[in-house]
């Protein structure tokens, strides 16, 4: 397995001890399952009892599958449960926490990333379906210390307050310009409406996009 930790502005810490136990095959898992029980500390009534009576079908379902994908130019080979979303893979396993979870249901846009250059909601995309794909997250937008013009414009026009929707807004805005949806203020607003900003920075986001668009043409 060649999983690499994501780019973390802070020093990456050691992988949690428990995580290693959970990868691998079902048989490994069954062994670890009793191991976990053995190392549990809490009162027996609270903590899971030792068990090894798994129905074959259920155990199969927990088996992880290999996924190869590229995030911000770096190739990853990761093992995930089929139910793991691209968003949770990015945030919880690869530590690309710049991509945000706001609703987990495709209703807010905070998790917007580019897959093969197209903006999508990573919360509704299973990681396994991204086999062989190129993912770009907010962490992959700048060129080293050189911010992407959209990032610069967001700072200049104060296109955010709390900052939590910002990654999604910027990823959406970069795609929007590429899509050519900047013909009018109305068009920008409409095609940025998949990104909710509760702080209400919308009009400033529009200004940032307009500036990037003007500077490009």
């Amino acid at each position: 397995m060649s999983t690499k930790p994501g780019k973390d502005p802070e020093k990456p810490e050691k992988e949690p001890a428990g995580e290693g136990l959970l990868s691998g095959t079902r048989r490994d898992f069954l062994k670890q399952s009793s191991l976990l029980s053995a190392i549990a500390f809490a009162p027996a009534t609270v903590v899971k009892a030792a068990e090894n009576q798994w129905p074959e079908k259920v155990a199969d379902a927990f088996e992880k599958v290999d996924v190869h994908l590229e995030v911000n130019g770096t190739k990853y080979n990761v093992q995930v449960e089929p139910r793991t979303t691209l968003l949770d893979l990015l945030r919880e396993q690869l530590n690309f926490t710049g991509t945000k979870k706001g609703c987990d249901r495709g209703q807010c846009g905070a998790c917007t990333v580019h897959v093969n250059g197209v903006r999508i909601n990573s919360c509704l995309s299973l990681a396994v379906t991204n086999e062989g794909k190129k993912i770009t997250t907010i962490e992959g937008l700048a060129n080293g210390d050189q911010l992407h013009p959209m990032q610069e414009a967001f700072i200049k026009h104060d296109g955010f307050q709390c900052g939590y929707c910002t990654s999604g807004q910027i990823m959406s805005a970069v795609a929007l310009v590429k899509e050519g949806r900047t013909q009018s203020r109305e068009q920008i607003s409409e095609f940025m409406s998949g990104n909710i900003c509760r702080c209400g920075a919308y009009s400033r986001i529009v200004k940032a996009i307009q500036e990037v668009k003007t500077n490009q043409s």
Binding site: P16, T97, I138, E139, D158, F160, G163
Partner: peptide, 20 residues
């Protein structure tokens, strides 16, 4: 803190990688 917020570098409470 604008730069941290536009690069995804700003860490919110659920984003600290704590061992275990």
């Amino acid at each position: 803190d604008g730069r941290l917020k536009v690069t995804g570098g700003a860490k919110y409470s659920g984003e600290y990688k704590v061992p275990g």
